[in-house]
């Protein structure tokens, strides 16, 4: 199962929104294969009858009062790191060609 093809790497990179060069595809093919091969040793463990753990302290649906909270920051502050902005909004690249 841990045989990763170049097409697999390209597909993972696409899902990850990472543009890779051909050289990188070759490099990551070997590295990802080695890592996945290592983690595959989990398959041998008997986990029958167990429930998965996603949260360790047992907290579930922590709620707060339904009221406005002042986070002490402004729209201007939140926009100050934007690569591009217009009229108080983030300006993103075009989505349709």
């Amino acid at each position: 199962m841990s045989n990763i093809s170049k097409d697999d790497v390209k597909n993972i990179a696409k899902l990850s929104r990472l543009k890779l060069s051909d050289e990188e595809v070759t490099k990551y093919q070997a590295e990802l294969e080695a890592i996945l091969h290592y983690v595959e040793k989990l398959q041998s463990a008997d986990t029958s009858g167990l429930e998965p753990t996603y949260q360790v302290t047992g907290l579930v649906n922590v709620l707060r009062a339904d009221e406005e909270i002042d986070y002490g920051t402004s729209k201007k502050e939140l926009l100050k790191n934007a690569p591009s902005q217009e009229n108080g909004h983030f300006k993103v690249k075009r989505m349709v060609g």
């Binding site: 990472l18 543009k19 934007a82 690569p83 983030f90 993103v92 690249k93 075009r94 989505m95 060609g97």
Partner: peptide, 19 residues
Amino acid sequence: GQRYGFSKPDAVELEDSYN
């Protein structure tokens, strides 16, 4: 690359900008 952090300046499409 849209709200903060490095953004490739000459990317045209949003998808390219992400990648």
